[in-house]
Design a protein around this nucleic acid. Structure first.
Lengths: 353, 353
DNA sequence: TTTCAAAATGGTAACGTTTTCATCATAATC
DNA sequence: GATTATGATGAAAACGTTACCATTTTGAAA
């Protein structure tokens, strides 16, 4: 492209190591040692250098350090989901980012957020950022089945962590996730405990690991309860509210008396359908969701709560551990969920499961 | 190259300018010129160098470049709001960030997201990131009245842009905002046009410029319509749903027949209160909100739509223009809003204002 | 031919750290 | 007193670019 005009801002030249060294009567190396708290500096010298640093208000230039050390103290957070997805669940990402931010701040890292808005962004990301080692590691927030980044990142030896189960790469990347299957099983069994026997399920997108696992949890529960699985009791949704609405209308035809929805958004859609048709909840139909969105409390929705903020913080710690050489990059954690009982399932007390 | 052990983090030393120069039989300087598309390179040489670059798969090391140029192509996005706020409005920030990302990607910048989770983060941000010139500019997403960052950033000569009106600094920083007052005025007048004469207002937080401006717009409308301002028709809220709920109950005592809520979240709270008390909407009370959240369509809420995504993109362009020396850093834009008419205000058609 | 500006290129100095290596003191051990 | 460790320090070499300046080549005008 064209070359840029130099920035007109006249910046007072910053202090550098040399200045401090001169003022304190030592060498650059010694000042560097003081700053990085290394050994082999006499207490006396350390003190003197420290004083000069404070007197002159010096802070090390991060750019020089980056070049010398090869580390930036920046982690990349990649959100490859389509715009629509980011829009759709307005709770998940901000919360996750807050968790990541907390852990990153705490350990003195900054986060480079990479929201992929167009398909060209993807290649650009790879070329521009990764190959140049601008980030010490990458946090991948993707639930796509086959994310092309994973093998590329692994090949390049860049530390990687995910907030979902990484499919076939599970033994090579860090990840934190919740036990979707177990949680779905709990949710389904809870409906059974409330006396329901015709329990339907509106699934999430089934190219998504969460969607798949929740469906499996539903099936597992049925199996363990000795209830035969019936195809007409399962509607394939896609996590969006609208599909919950459609799914509910379909399942009503099949005469279910309870529905486990793979997320709260679809549960809201389902509730809307029931409301329109004058079906009583939980009188005629009991509903359980998944996620525990903030709005779910208002909607009195029984649902599975998952600790998203914690998830963000924890996955960040895993990543940083690998970056800092504490771990070798294949650790993972399974976070606990719990059932939050509200009015839509017909139970009357709140307890944890 | 050969990477037999997956976890042996042995990175094959990257190529550098020197390698390319040697292979192409030219100097480092020439290769640099080719890469940066500068003049004074013969077509023949350019070609040859280009070929070598492609053959060897070289990409310039961004860290060396950063040190040499003093520019990182990173902008900082600072969100100083408390955690609660980020949580509360789950639409605004993600949408804004998407807009920022779009513009930044387009112009080859990356965004460093800085969510301030604790008060110590603030000072750390200043010390660690700014003083070291890790970011070429800063996008401040704050509506706080007195953000202590602004003068500091200005002092340091760091390009700055805001998504709200920057109060007393308006003539020194870039900003993009919507005309809150005009929009609030339109909203209020619309209620009047629907035949309402006892129009109340639930304000936003009044330490917030948006809250203030929207209240002013409400007052302006009354003045222009010749309706006396009545204190008991105004309830001071704080943008949260709960305060809308409380506000509505309070305004009912004052016998209003319409309420302009300073945001949609409070409007939802107000609707909930009305629903509980069996007050008909819009029969007895008409409601207008502000923001046009995605949920507002479902709630059939008449509201002011503001182009948040565009706002994010535009403010980013302003910032980058200053960074690249195209502007001097005191530009601003006022984005247009429009009234979206749905069922809660008693009008029957949708039009734009 | 001479002259001269512009184009093309190379050499090398920044940029500001961290790291490595060598050199001294100094204290501990024999 | 000789010999080691070891603690403290500095000089200089990376790190990989870009920016500046000097030099050579080229092509056209005088």
């Amino acid at each position: 492209m064209s070359k840029l005009k130099p920035n007109a801002n006249h910046k007072a030249k910053d202090l550098n190591l040399e200045d401090i060294a001169r003022e304190a009567g030592v060498s650059r190396a010694t000042v560097s040692r003081v700053i990085n708290n290394e050994a082999y500096v006499s207490e006396e010298t350390r003190q003197r250098v420290q004083e000069v640093i404070e007197k002159l208000g010096y802070t090390p230039n991060i750019r020089g350090r980056i070049l010398a050390t090869g580390r930036t103290n920046i982690i990349g957070v990649v959100i490859p989901q389509s715009l629509a997805t980011v829009f759709d669940d307005q709770f998940y990402f901000p919360t996750l980012l807050n968790g990541v931010a907390q852990a990153a701040n705490q350990r003195n890292y900054a986060m480079l957020l990479w929201i992929q808005e167009s398909s060209t962004d993807e290649e650009r990301f790879y070329e521009r950022i990764l190959k140049n080692h601008l980030m010490d590691g990458v946090l991948l927030a993707s639930t796509q089945q086959d994310n092309p980044f994973i093998p590329r990142l692994l090949d390049m030896g860049i530390p990687l962590a995910m907030v979902e189960h990484p499919h076939q790469w599970a033994d090579r990347v860090n990840f934190v996730t919740v036990d979707n299957q177990a949680a779905a099983c709990v949710a389904t069994k809870h409906l059974y405990q409330q006396g329901r026997r015709k329990i339907g399920h509106i699934t999430g997108a089934l190219n998504n690991i969460d969607g798949i696992k929740r469906l499996e949890g539903y099936k597992q529960a049925l199996a363990e309860l000795g209830i035969p699985y019936r195809d007409e009791f399962v509607f394939e949704g896609n996590f969006e509210s609208r599909s919950g609405y459609k799914g509910m209308r379909a399942l009503l035809e099949a005469h279910v008396d309870a529905v486990f929805c793979a997320n709260d958004q679809m549960a809201v859609g389902a509730l809307k359908a029931l409301d329109e048709l004058g079906v009583r909840v939980p009188g005629d139909i009991a509903i359980v969701g998944f996620d525990d969105l903030p709005t779910s409390e208002r909607n009195k929705l029984t649902t599975i709560h998952q600790p998203i903020h914690t998830k963000g913080a924890q996955v960040t710690h895993l990543l940083l551990d690998q970056i800092e050489g504490v771990s070798d990059g294949a650790r993972h954690a399974l976070l606990e969920t719990h059932l939050v009982i509200r009015e839509t399932c017909g139970a009357s007390i709140t307890r944890r499961a």
